[in-house]
Design a protein around this nucleic acid. Structure first.
Lengths: 102, 102
DNA sequence: CAAACTAGTTTGTGTTGCAAACCATAAAGT
DNA sequence: ACTTTATGGTTTGCAACACAAACTAGTTTG
């Protein structure tokens, strides 16, 4: 079997998880996004979104900055360089998979 | 945001799991494959392969037939119609994702 | 007949994804 | 003033999962 296919087993799980793939995809086009924006766009619960963002942050894929908008908390997220690279890598791996199957 | 992207969150987890995606991909081209062949091709441990095949069987994506080759057990697996359909659906969803991102 | 091999399955464990409950602050109602 | 209600999240509890190691049942080899 082709190595491209076998490489499926080492897909980056941090990105492969659908909820995070969605988050990262949005961030890849948005330059930066706040928590509530991400929640609306993804449809995730706050709890889930918070947990996934924390994982992405731990992995170094997302930078999270907590500030205030007026008097309310504001959490702003953006993809790091490493996050962008990981996303592109994932995308390419998936593209290879698509092209090798039928 | 586009519905195609948001639909990432309802990717079929049974197929999305990399080890199973690999198994299903192999089965989608192989008509039928025995346990040891799958193990060689996927590089999974026996335990893992066994567990993933059981899940695919429970989900109705794979039919498993246990027979003998001479005196040794022989486990033959094949994708069901439902499994093929699920695989195609997954592939199309991923293709849509690839095409919508950059 | 004992050791080693074959073809798997079951068990144990740490990790995860998810929703529900919670928390701190701020605005609104009475 | 003071008690709800809303805002913007985080923490907790739990079932499900992925994985490797241990086990099982039968077979061949020495």
């Amino acid at each position: 079997m082709s190595d491209d296919l076998r490489s499926l087993t080492d897909l980056d799980r941090l990105i492969h998880e659908p909820a995070r793939l969605l988050i990262v995809t949005i961030l890849s086009t948005a330059e930066s996004a706040d928590f509530l924006f991400l929640q609306r766009e993804t449809g995730l619960t706050k709890g889930n979104l918070s947990a996934h963002l924390s994982k992405l942050e731990e992995g170094g894929y997302v930078k999270i900055e907590k500030t205030f908008k007026g008097k309310l908390p504001l959490t702003v997220c953006k993809l790091t360089a490493s996050g962008q690279k990981a996303f592109q890598g994932y995308r390419q791996q998936m593209q290879a998979f698509i092209m090798q199957t039928k």
